[in-house]
Computed example of a mutant assay.
Amino acid sequence: MCLTVRVVYELPLRQTQGLMRSIAALMGVEITVPDFSTLSRRSKGLALPPVRRRTACWRPVHLVVDSTGLKVFGEGEWLENKHKIKVKRKRWRKLHLGLDLVSGEIVCSDLTTDDVGDPIALSDLLGQIDGPVGKFIADGAYDGAATRDLLTTRLGEIVEVIIPPPKTAVASSQSALNPTVRDRHIAKIETKGGRMAWQKSTGYNQRSRVKTQMGRWKTVIGPKLKARNLDNQKTEAKIGVRVLNRMTELGHPEFSRVA
């Protein structure tokens, strides 16, 4: 709970400690609030309950995945601000998110170093989904044989995969007899009015919703990570996912029949 309050209000650990102790004192509750060093130590590798889907687990997920960069606060920024030293390279982490288009929930997430490619992180994302996937949407960074083989192995042959081929893509040698999904996308782009028409007909333009979720993250949670090491940063990212899902659930309308 203390770490969740810290993420929501973007507080340092010392301020989180003081806030929680003040709340306990105002409520008259005799409870020991962990100090800042204990919060930092216990957040490393903290095991959180799995993300609970609001909708039925048997309903196929319409999964759209993407990644964005989160800044890491470190000594480089302090040196640049205080001593006007130009930092050669800023440090980043990559946040990978998987969004269910039907419910608007984040159903899978991962935080990696900036040198981990999107297709490499996809395996861990798919391992977090406990139900069937009916549709998979991603940008051109996921195009490739490795991604297609992974999706076939994990999700089966019936999943609808929507990944735009690059502009220089050509059909495979067997496209006339046994076309792949990628071959069909290439042919449709060439014969059905170009890429914009293909995006509209396949539903690829719904990928903008995960971009919107990235914007919500950087507005509500923040564009940078406060934790200093990768394990604590992973915990901070997992808590951020739970916070956004909770806010989505609170703002989701509920319908009930009254007559």
Rank of each mutant, 00 (worst) to 15 (best):
A145M: 06
A145Q: 11
A146E: 12
T147Q: 01
T147P: 01
R148D: 07
R148N: 02
D149Y: 02
D149A: 13
L150W: 05
L151E: 02
L151V: 01
L151F: 01
L151C: 02
L151A: 03
T152F: 06
T152R: 12
T153W: 01
R154E: 12
R154C: 10
R154A: 12
L155K: 00
G156L: 02
G156F: 02
I158F: 06
V159I: 03
V159H: 01
V159A: 01
V161Q: 02
I163M: 00
P165Q: 07
P166L: 08
P166Y: 08
K167S: 13
T168N: 14
A169E: 07
V170L: 12
V170D: 09
S173I: 11
S173C: 06
Q174T: 10
S175L: 06
S175H: 15
S175K: 12
A176Y: 07
L177G: 06
L177V: 09
L177M: 07
P179K: 06
P179E: 08
T180M: 03
V181I: 14
V181K: 13
V181C: 12
V181S: 11
R182N: 11
R182C: 08
R182Q: 12
D183V: 04
D183E: 08
R184L: 15
I186D: 03
I186W: 03
I186G: 03
I186C: 06
I186V: 10
A187G: 13
K188T: 15
K188E: 15
I189Y: 03
E190Y: 07
E190L: 14
E190G: 10
E190C: 11
K192L: 11
K192V: 09
G194K: 07
G194P: 04
R195F: 10
R195M: 10
M196K: 14
A197L: 09
W198N: 03
Q199E: 14
T202A: 06
T202L: 05
T202G: 05
T202D: 04
G203I: 04
Y204S: 04
Y204F: 15
Y204A: 09
